[in-house]
Each structure stands twice: as structure tokens, then as C-alpha cells.
Design a protein around this nucleic acid. Sequence first.
DNA 1: ATCCATAGCGCC
DNA 2: AGGGCGCTATGGAT
Length: 565
Amino acid sequence: MEEIAVAVEDDRVVLQGLDGATRQELDRDEAPVRFAELERSGARWIWAETKDLYPELLRAGIRLERCVDLRLGHAILARSTYLTEPPAATDEFWHRSPADLAEDEQPTLLARPVERADLDQVIAEHRRQTEAVAGSPHRGRLRLLLAAESAGALIAAELHHHGLPFDVAVHDRQLTGLLGPRPRFGGRPAVLEGLLGEVRSALRLPSLNPDSPPELLRALHTAGLDATSTRQWELSKLDHPAIAPLLTYKKLSRLLAANGWGWADQWVHDGRFRPDYVPAGVVTGRWATRGGGALQIPKLLRGAVTADPGWRLVVADAAQLEPRVLAAMASDHRLARAARGGDLYQGLVDERVVETRAKAKVAMLGALYGATTGESGQLMPRLIRAYPRATGLVEDAARAGERGEVVTTWLGRSSPPPGESWARVQSAASDAEAGPAEQRRARQQARDWGRFTRNFVVQGTAAEWALCWMADLRNRLAGLGPPEQRPYLVYFLHDEIIVHTPDSLAEQAEQAVREAAATATRLMFGSFEIDLALDLATVTSYAETEPAADPVELLDAEEEPAVLD
DNA sequence: ATCCATAGCGCC
DNA sequence: AGGGCGCTATGGAT
């Protein structure tokens, strides 16, 4: 396999094999042909950023097997204080984070020139990263992480290229059923208008705008209701005829604003919803998306995500991924035993740790997030007694964060150090003349950061598992069917994937999803016996995996949707 | 007209 | 006093 460094310079693409071959310079529009040739002979592409070139290669019909995305690699290595030394001094170019870059690429009036690395920078950075990894006692983990991260960059581009199959006609029917027909000239749909009227007359404020929290809060006070905010859960506890229509109004106006007709016009084209995915856009290594709120498609509207005729959707999510990953990280055999089978929370009940599944969930999430009060806090001692290793791992991460230290995921992504105010606040509290206010502030800050680092190690490791899962799945799918009839990934949501597959290959696609999950688990956790269970379904519509939120059923019922109550 | 912080809520 | 996000409308500041 040949390693080929690539640099993009405006309308030119420069290539050079790392075995010392001479440079080739191509017109950008002739690049796809050359890439296709070299890809056939088995290349690994090394470039600064996958999104500089891969989208246009995909449009030209070229799919690449593997790459090294140096930008993503640098973001990991430059911070991995625990698993390796950062790469030797690098130029400023590499220091910007994936999230910052995505931010910069938002369309602005003053479009600034895109900053790109030249070929020498690419080659030098690749050498630095290779050396940094080779010098690490944990090089195996880092190599896996970097490989998965780069595969993720290819996948992100491919997800955007293919898009999520989305039926705007179904979407329109859903919206019409919930809100009334689309108003021709803007304005509120009929159902919203009606609810607004009910709220206004119940509060005797004919021009109230409930979309303004301060105005709404004042109105509630005037009506004799003592609310401190206009949040749903607080409003729902109030007893007043305005509350029921108000809650429904808020729900529906939110739906309209975030995922209404305008949203579909803007983001769905030719039956595909194409958000921009940003690998490592989140500090923990989770992906972010830009545009369209792709990671927040409301369950209520998922029925509009439908397979093409003759095709199906394989929808799979990793059930209780984070606690399972935690069990493996901590080598907590007892928690791993509870995780055997499809439902870890039920496992806790069966193991007599807690009485009900609901309690198990609250307790486990509390451990992952750092709950100290309420039901979750009360259940914590039992969880600690039952699973000292797993709970100890997240406790240690929290304590490290409270001391201002960096924590690291299983494969080697480190948390950012605390911000610049950290040292100031902490030292102010240790000052001899520090008052109780300074003390309190410092303790608060430390606890807050501890909750962040506590969750970081688990959320980040879960993101790594998901990445390995998806990367291996991508390879398996590439081996199925002829190119035009080949299953491909169309969606990724932290611990959930959707594959669009021809009917005839649905079973093979399912099998690939399962095998890829097993491979990811083995790659990351070796022989430790942990069951990373999948909930998996082959469906025509995404809503079929969430029966309770199926809007078609809601519409057929011809009454106020139960979901909104 | 444009930028920014905040409140609120959607997802995991 | 439960982690991570993106997005919208609002309302004050520029």
C-alpha cells in the first residue's frame, strides 16, 4: 500500500508518494481520474483535511478506502498529555480545532480565503505525528484512535454526499396534521393561532406574546401564579386554564420554528437531508453537525425519514452504550454480567441492586453525570457498593477534574485543561484572607469541572466505540453488492446508525452491523467480556423504531396527539 | 442593521 | 447544584 501526501492549492492538487516519488501537480478537475487510478492500486491518502477535496471526489464518483486526516490527528495528539508527548513544534496552521474550522466556514459576507497547508507542511506534520505515536507506550490505542478518526472523516463526507432519505410529502402531512395547513404568506398556522387565542383569553391579555419568556413570566405573575421560569416542567405544575393550551402552543411553535416547512425548504433537496457532519466537533470526541440540527430530528417527525422504493433502512443503536463501555474500561466483571443481554438496566434489577428498571436508569445516569441529590443521589451508595470498580473509575475522573487535572479516554483523547479563570479562582480561595464567598466559588468551580471530567472519560470512550463500529461497518458494506445496489450509511447519531440498503441485501447489512459492533468491542477491549448490545430493526420508516411517536398513528386517531400531553 | 447573551427545548 | 451539544426567538447593546 502506497502512502500519498496530498495538498490542495486553489485550482491545483499536488501529490507525492512518501516513498520518495516525484511530485505531481494536477488541475483540480483532473484530480478524480488520477485518484481513481491510484486508489485501485491501493493507496492511503494523507492530507490536511478530508473536506478540502473528498466531497468533490465523491461527486465525481470516487470513493476512497482510507486516509489520514492530519488536522483531526493533530487535535488529538497535541493534547494527549498522558498517552504521548505532543508532536514536536508545529506551525500555527495545525492548531485550530475542527469545531473552530467548521465555524469559520459558515457563509459570511466577508468570505475569507481558505487557509491550506502546502505539501511540505503535510509531509512534515505526518512525520511528526507518526513519531509521536511511535514514541508512546500506548501506541496501539493511539493508532486505533487515529485510524478511526480518519475513517470518520471519510464517513462524514459520505454521509453528507448521500444524505438522509427524507420524504417532504410525509413531513408536510405530519405538520399539517399537527399545526394545520401551511400558511400561504407566512404567519401562524391555524392550530397555533387557535391555541394562542385560548392562552390570551385565559390570561385576559389579548396581545400577549408567549414566545417572550419575560413577557410570559410577567403575565403569569399578573394572573396570580408564582412561577420563577417559563420552563415546561414548571408550567405543568401550575393550575390555571391558560396552562394546557400554553404548553401545547409552546410544543408546537417549537416544532414549527425548528423543523417546520421552512426548515424542510432549506435543508431537504431531492429527497435528501444533507447536514454537515463535524467529526470531533465536541470536546469529548463526539461529532457535531452544522446546519439543520441534524442530531435533533424530533422523534415526532421521524416518520418522514423513509427508504426509497425497493430499499430499506437498517436502524441500529447501541443500547446503554455508556454504562457498558464503563464496565469494560473499569474491568468491572459484575457490571459486565448485569450488561449481558439486551437491557443493562433490567440487569441491575435482576442482580438485586435496585428494585425497578426506572431506578436503575436514574442511578446509572447519576453515576455518569455526577448527580449528588434527589433520587439519583440517594441510590448512589447502592451502586457504589455493587460496582466499586465502575463507579470508582468515574469517581477518580471527577476527583482529577476537581484538582484541575486532565483526564483521558480509553483510546487516548484527553480533556482540555481548565480555563484561564481556574487558577485565579482556586488560588483566591487558598489565600489566607479568603472569605467564605471565595471558598464557595472555588469549591463550586471544582465540582462543576469534576462533573465534566467524570462524564468526559465515558462519553469520549463511547464515542470512540461508535467510531470504530462505524469505520468497520463502512468496510464491510463496501464488500456487499454492486456499486449501485450497495448498502451505505446515511445517518449517525452518537450511538445510533442508519444504513440505506436494497431490500435484497437487508439481512446482509444487518449482519454487517452486528459484526462491526463485535469487531469494535474486540478492537477496543480485547478479551474482556462485555456485551455491547444492539437494538436493531429493518424498517421502511425511521418512525417504526419509535412506535409511540409515530405521527401517522397520531393523525389517524383524529384527536389531540397524546404525545403533546 | 448586526452582534451577542439568554432562555428554552430538541437530541444523545 | 446531572454531562455533551445546536438551534430559535427575544431583547438589549452597538
